[in-house]
Design a protein around this nucleic acid. Structure first.
Lengths: 122, 122
DNA sequence: CGGTATCCCGGTCGATACTG
DNA sequence: CAGTATCGACCGGGATACCG
Protein backbone atom coordinates (compact mmCIF):
# COMPACT_ATOMS: atom_id res chain seq x y z
CA UNK A 1 0.00 0.00 0.00
CA UNK A 2 1.97 2.96 -1.18
CA UNK A 3 0.12 5.90 0.26
CA UNK A 4 2.84 8.09 -1.11
CA UNK A 5 1.25 8.19 -4.54
CA UNK A 6 -0.11 11.64 -4.03
CA UNK A 7 0.72 13.03 -7.40
CA UNK A 8 -1.80 10.90 -9.24
CA UNK A 9 -3.86 13.58 -10.90
CA UNK A 10 -3.91 16.16 -8.17
CA UNK A 11 -6.42 13.94 -6.50
CA UNK A 12 -6.59 13.87 -2.74
CA UNK A 13 -6.40 17.60 -2.68
CA UNK A 14 -6.61 19.09 0.74
CA UNK A 15 -5.39 16.14 2.73
CA UNK A 16 -1.75 16.92 2.51
CA UNK A 17 -1.36 19.13 -0.48
CA UNK A 18 -0.10 22.00 1.60
CA UNK A 19 3.24 22.88 0.08
CA UNK A 20 2.32 21.18 -3.18
CA UNK A 21 -0.85 22.70 -4.58
CA UNK A 22 -0.77 26.52 -4.69
CA UNK A 23 -4.50 26.81 -3.98
CA UNK A 24 -4.51 24.55 -0.95
CA UNK A 25 -1.41 26.27 0.31
CA UNK A 26 -2.84 29.75 -0.06
CA UNK A 27 -6.13 28.82 1.55
CA UNK A 28 -4.22 27.39 4.52
CA UNK A 29 -2.35 30.64 5.01
CA UNK A 30 -5.56 32.65 4.67
CA UNK A 31 -7.66 30.39 6.86
CA UNK A 32 -7.94 32.88 9.69
CA UNK A 33 -11.03 35.05 9.54
CA UNK A 34 -8.91 38.19 9.64
CA UNK A 35 -5.86 37.24 7.60
CA UNK A 36 -6.75 39.13 4.44
CA UNK A 37 -7.75 42.23 6.35
CA UNK A 38 -4.59 42.26 8.46
CA UNK A 39 -2.34 41.81 5.46
CA UNK A 40 -4.18 44.64 3.77
CA UNK A 41 -3.58 46.90 6.74
CA UNK A 42 0.14 46.20 6.58
CA UNK A 43 0.29 46.82 2.85
CA UNK A 44 1.65 50.33 3.24
CA UNK A 45 4.24 49.81 5.89
CA UNK A 46 4.56 48.86 9.56
CA UNK A 47 1.63 49.22 11.90
CA UNK A 48 1.55 49.00 15.67
CA UNK A 49 -0.52 46.56 17.65
CA UNK A 50 -3.01 49.01 19.06
CA UNK A 51 -3.29 50.79 15.76
CA UNK A 52 -4.44 47.53 14.18
CA UNK A 53 -6.83 47.08 17.05
CA UNK A 54 -8.31 50.47 16.31
CA UNK A 55 -8.57 49.97 12.58
CA UNK A 56 -10.12 46.54 12.75
CA UNK A 57 -12.99 45.68 15.02
CA UNK A 58 -11.45 42.56 16.50
CA UNK A 59 -10.90 41.17 19.98
CA UNK A 60 -7.44 41.73 21.39
CA UNK A 61 -6.77 38.05 21.96
CA UNK A 62 -7.93 37.16 18.50
CA UNK A 63 -5.69 39.78 16.92
CA UNK A 64 -2.76 38.49 18.93
CA UNK A 65 -3.40 34.94 17.76
CA UNK A 66 -3.80 35.84 14.11
CA UNK A 67 -0.62 37.89 14.18
CA UNK A 68 1.28 35.02 15.73
CA UNK A 69 -0.07 32.66 13.11
CA UNK A 70 0.83 34.95 10.22
CA UNK A 71 4.26 35.41 11.73
CA UNK A 72 4.73 31.65 12.00
CA UNK A 73 3.73 31.27 8.36
CA UNK A 74 6.37 33.79 7.42
CA UNK A 75 3.98 36.44 6.15
CA UNK A 76 4.75 39.16 8.66
CA UNK A 77 7.56 40.22 10.95
CA UNK A 78 7.30 41.47 14.50
CA UNK A 79 9.61 44.26 15.53
CA UNK A 80 10.01 45.35 19.12
CA UNK A 81 11.36 48.77 20.06
CA UNK A 82 12.13 49.47 23.67
CA UNK A 83 13.46 53.00 23.46
CA UNK A 84 11.05 54.94 25.60
CA UNK A 85 7.63 53.35 25.66
CA UNK A 86 7.24 49.81 24.44
CA UNK A 87 6.47 49.82 20.76
CA UNK A 88 5.74 46.78 18.62
CA UNK A 89 5.33 47.07 14.91
CA UNK A 90 4.21 44.49 12.43
CA UNK A 91 5.27 44.57 8.82
CA UNK A 92 5.20 42.37 5.77
CA UNK A 93 8.12 40.07 5.06
CA UNK A 94 9.41 39.80 1.47
CA UNK A 95 7.09 36.88 0.71
CA UNK A 96 4.33 38.80 2.46
CA UNK A 97 4.96 41.79 0.22
CA UNK A 98 4.58 39.60 -2.82
CA UNK A 99 1.07 38.92 -1.61
CA UNK A 100 0.15 42.47 -2.61
CA UNK A 101 -0.70 41.36 -6.12
CA UNK A 102 -3.28 38.99 -4.65
CA UNK A 103 -4.63 41.76 -2.44
CA UNK A 104 -5.00 43.98 -5.45
CA UNK A 105 -6.95 41.40 -7.41
CA UNK A 106 -9.10 40.77 -4.35
CA UNK A 107 -9.85 44.46 -4.03
CA UNK A 108 -10.78 44.71 -7.68
CA UNK A 109 -12.98 41.65 -7.68
CA UNK A 110 -14.48 42.51 -4.31
CA UNK A 111 -15.68 45.81 -5.66
CA UNK A 112 -17.14 44.15 -8.72
CA UNK A 113 -18.91 41.70 -6.47
CA UNK A 114 -20.29 44.53 -4.34
CA UNK A 115 -21.66 46.14 -7.48
CA UNK A 116 -23.20 42.82 -8.41
CA UNK A 117 -24.83 42.56 -4.99
CA UNK A 118 -26.37 45.99 -5.27
CA UNK A 119 -27.76 45.27 -8.72
CA UNK A 120 -29.17 42.03 -7.42
CA UNK A 121 -31.18 43.63 -4.66
CA UNK A 122 -33.03 46.12 -6.80
CA UNK B 1 -27.23 56.61 19.73
CA UNK B 2 -26.87 56.41 16.03
CA UNK B 3 -25.24 53.07 15.46
CA UNK B 4 -25.60 53.73 11.76
CA UNK B 5 -22.38 55.73 11.64
CA UNK B 6 -20.41 52.96 10.04
CA UNK B 7 -18.60 54.98 7.45
CA UNK B 8 -16.37 56.78 9.95
CA UNK B 9 -12.93 55.90 8.64
CA UNK B 10 -13.42 52.32 7.64
CA UNK B 11 -13.28 51.57 11.32
CA UNK B 12 -15.37 48.77 12.67
CA UNK B 13 -14.24 46.59 9.84
CA UNK B 14 -15.59 43.11 9.96
CA UNK B 15 -18.67 43.84 11.97
CA UNK B 16 -20.88 44.71 9.10
CA UNK B 17 -18.61 45.75 6.30
CA UNK B 18 -19.80 42.93 4.10
CA UNK B 19 -20.98 44.67 0.97
CA UNK B 20 -18.92 47.75 1.72
CA UNK B 21 -15.27 46.80 2.09
CA UNK B 22 -13.99 44.63 -0.78
CA UNK B 23 -11.62 42.69 1.51
CA UNK B 24 -14.21 41.84 4.13
CA UNK B 25 -16.64 40.92 1.40
CA UNK B 26 -14.22 38.64 -0.39
CA UNK B 27 -13.13 36.95 2.79
CA UNK B 28 -16.77 36.26 3.62
CA UNK B 29 -17.33 34.59 0.28
CA UNK B 30 -14.12 32.57 0.62
CA UNK B 31 -14.65 31.63 4.24
CA UNK B 32 -15.33 27.98 3.52
CA UNK B 33 -12.29 25.75 3.75
CA UNK B 34 -12.84 24.49 0.22
CA UNK B 35 -14.15 27.57 -1.57
CA UNK B 36 -10.97 28.44 -3.44
CA UNK B 37 -10.38 24.86 -4.48
CA UNK B 38 -13.93 24.37 -5.71
CA UNK B 39 -13.89 27.58 -7.72
CA UNK B 40 -10.59 26.49 -9.21
CA UNK B 41 -12.08 23.16 -10.26
CA UNK B 42 -14.91 24.94 -12.05
CA UNK B 43 -12.57 27.34 -13.80
CA UNK B 44 -12.62 25.39 -17.05
CA UNK B 45 -16.29 24.63 -17.37
CA UNK B 46 -19.04 22.66 -15.67
CA UNK B 47 -18.21 19.74 -13.39
CA UNK B 48 -20.52 17.11 -11.99
CA UNK B 49 -21.01 16.48 -8.29
CA UNK B 50 -19.27 13.14 -8.11
CA UNK B 51 -16.48 14.37 -10.31
CA UNK B 52 -15.77 17.10 -7.77
CA UNK B 53 -15.91 14.48 -5.07
CA UNK B 54 -13.27 12.49 -6.89
CA UNK B 55 -10.98 15.41 -7.59
CA UNK B 56 -11.09 16.84 -4.09
CA UNK B 57 -10.68 14.75 -1.00
CA UNK B 58 -13.71 16.06 0.81
CA UNK B 59 -16.66 14.58 2.66
CA UNK B 60 -19.83 14.37 0.63
CA UNK B 61 -21.88 16.36 3.09
CA UNK B 62 -19.24 19.05 3.29
CA UNK B 63 -19.06 19.36 -0.48
CA UNK B 64 -22.81 19.65 -0.65
CA UNK B 65 -22.82 22.41 1.94
CA UNK B 66 -20.02 24.40 0.33
CA UNK B 67 -21.70 24.18 -3.06
CA UNK B 68 -24.96 25.39 -1.60
CA UNK B 69 -23.18 28.27 0.06
CA UNK B 70 -21.35 29.29 -3.09
CA UNK B 71 -24.60 29.06 -5.01
CA UNK B 72 -26.34 31.26 -2.47
CA UNK B 73 -23.55 33.82 -2.76
CA UNK B 74 -24.05 33.86 -6.51
CA UNK B 75 -20.66 32.40 -7.41
CA UNK B 76 -21.85 29.19 -9.03
CA UNK B 77 -24.92 27.84 -10.74
CA UNK B 78 -26.47 24.41 -10.32
CA UNK B 79 -27.85 22.75 -13.42
CA UNK B 80 -29.93 19.61 -13.26
CA UNK B 81 -30.35 17.33 -16.27
CA UNK B 82 -32.86 14.52 -16.06
CA UNK B 83 -32.55 13.00 -19.50
CA UNK B 84 -31.45 9.46 -18.78
CA UNK B 85 -29.53 9.22 -15.53
CA UNK B 86 -29.67 12.12 -13.12
CA UNK B 87 -26.89 14.55 -13.85
CA UNK B 88 -26.07 17.67 -11.90
CA UNK B 89 -23.44 20.07 -13.07
CA UNK B 90 -21.96 23.06 -11.33
CA UNK B 91 -20.54 25.99 -13.21
CA UNK B 92 -19.36 29.52 -12.58
CA UNK B 93 -21.81 32.38 -12.91
CA UNK B 94 -20.67 35.59 -14.64
CA UNK B 95 -19.50 37.11 -11.35
CA UNK B 96 -17.90 33.77 -10.53
CA UNK B 97 -16.02 33.83 -13.80
CA UNK B 98 -14.63 37.22 -12.96
CA UNK B 99 -13.05 35.59 -9.95
CA UNK B 100 -10.60 33.87 -12.30
CA UNK B 101 -8.21 36.80 -12.09
CA UNK B 102 -8.04 36.30 -8.34
CA UNK B 103 -7.49 32.58 -8.82
CA UNK B 104 -4.64 33.31 -11.17
CA UNK B 105 -2.91 35.64 -8.75
CA UNK B 106 -3.43 33.07 -6.00
CA UNK B 107 -1.85 30.37 -8.12
CA UNK B 108 1.11 32.56 -8.92
CA UNK B 109 1.69 33.66 -5.35
CA UNK B 110 1.01 30.19 -3.98
CA UNK B 111 3.80 28.80 -6.09
CA UNK B 112 6.15 31.53 -4.97
CA UNK B 113 5.26 30.76 -1.39
CA UNK B 114 5.91 27.06 -1.94
CA UNK B 115 9.32 27.93 -3.30
CA UNK B 116 9.90 30.08 -0.24
CA UNK B 117 8.92 27.20 2.02
CA UNK B 118 11.35 24.83 0.37
CA UNK B 119 14.20 27.30 0.62
CA UNK B 120 13.33 27.83 4.26
CA UNK B 121 13.65 24.19 5.19
CA UNK B 122 17.12 23.63 3.81
C1' DC C 1 -26.34 9.51 -9.19
C1' DG C 2 -26.63 13.17 -6.06
C1' DG C 3 -27.70 14.17 -2.46
C1' DT C 4 -29.87 14.48 3.31
C1' DA C 5 -29.82 13.56 8.10
C1' DT C 6 -27.29 12.98 12.33
C1' DC C 7 -23.95 13.09 15.50
C1' DC C 8 -19.79 14.68 17.28
C1' DC C 9 -15.45 16.75 17.79
C1' DG C 10 -11.93 20.25 17.47
C1' DG C 11 -10.93 24.62 16.73
C1' DT C 12 -11.88 29.53 16.28
C1' DC C 13 -13.56 33.64 17.86
C1' DG C 14 -15.07 36.86 21.32
C1' DA C 15 -15.54 38.87 26.09
C1' DT C 16 -13.45 39.70 30.18
C1' DA C 17 -9.90 40.06 33.37
C1' DC C 18 -5.25 40.43 34.45
C1' DT C 19 0.13 41.41 33.59
C1' DG C 20 5.14 43.02 32.54
C1' DC D 1 1.56 49.78 25.45
C1' DA D 2 1.19 45.16 24.10
C1' DG D 3 0.04 41.62 25.20
C1' DT D 4 -1.50 36.61 28.04
C1' DA D 5 -4.97 33.66 30.45
C1' DT D 6 -9.23 31.70 30.79
C1' DC D 7 -13.63 30.35 29.61
C1' DG D 8 -17.53 29.60 26.91
C1' DA D 9 -20.29 29.58 22.65
C1' DC D 10 -20.60 28.66 18.30
C1' DC D 11 -20.08 26.13 14.06
C1' DG D 12 -17.58 24.32 10.29
C1' DG D 13 -16.25 20.11 8.82
C1' DG D 14 -15.68 14.87 8.98
C1' DA D 15 -17.70 10.17 9.35
C1' DT D 16 -21.44 7.37 8.76
C1' DA D 17 -25.85 5.98 7.41
C1' DC D 18 -29.77 6.50 4.76
C1' DC D 19 -32.95 8.35 0.68
C1' DG D 20 -35.40 9.64 -4.01
Amino acid sequence: MEIEQIEETTKKQGKELFGICPYVTTQTVLQGKWAILILYQLENGPVRFNELLRRIDIAQGTLSNQLKYLEKEGMIRRNVYTEGVLRVEYELTPIGEKFRTVLQSIEKWGNEYITYLKAKHL
